[in-house]
C-alpha cells in the first residue's frame, strides 16, 4: 500500500507545477490548465487525507471542488472565445489595454 505521505508529496508537486504554470506561461489556455492542476492537486490531497483518517469528509469536499472548477472553466472559455474573436490571440501579453 502506498503511504499517505507519498500522495501528499505528489499533490504538493502538482500544486507547485500549477502555481509556476500560472506565473510563467503566457497562453491563457495553458494558464487555465495550470489553475485546474492546482485545484486537482488539492483534490488529491483531500482524498489522501480522507483515506488516512478513514472518513468521507474530504471526499465530499472534492465533489464541490470539481463542480466549481467546471463552472469556472465554462465562464473562462466563453470569455476566451470573445477575446479571441476580437484580437485573434490567446496570449495574455497581447491583452493589455489596461495598464496593469
Amino acid at each position: 500500500m502506498i503511504s499517505t505521505n507519498a500522495y501528499v508529496l505528489l499533490s504538493a508537486i502538482l500544486f507547485t507545477i500549477g502555481v509556476v504554470g500560472v506565473l510563467v506561461r503566457r497562453n491563457v489556455i495553458i494558464m487555465f490548465m495550470s489553475v485546474e492542476l492546482m485545484l486537482n492537486s488539492a483534490n488529491l490531497a483531500l482524498i489522501a487525507f480522507s483515506r488516512a483518517r478513514a472518513e468521507s469528509d474530504g471526499q465530499i469536499m472534492t465533489f464541490f471542488v470539481i463542480a466549481v472548477a467546471a463552472a469556472e472553466v465554462a465562464v473562462g472559455l466563453a470569455l476566451l472565445v470573445s477575446i479571441f474573436r476580437a484580437k485573434k490571440t490567446t496570449n495574455i501579453d497581447d491583452v493589455n489595454t489596461l495598464k496593469g
Binding site: V22, M38, F49, D57, G76
Partner: peptide, 18 residues
C-alpha cells in the same frame, strides 16, 4: 485567472488544514 489562482490556494489550504 487570478480568481482561479486564489481559489487553488483556498482549496489547497483547506486540504492542509483538514
Amino acid at each position: 485567472l487570478l480568481g482561479g489562482f486564489a481559489a487553488g490556494f483556498l482549496v489547497y489550504g483547506i486540504a492542509l488544514i483538514y
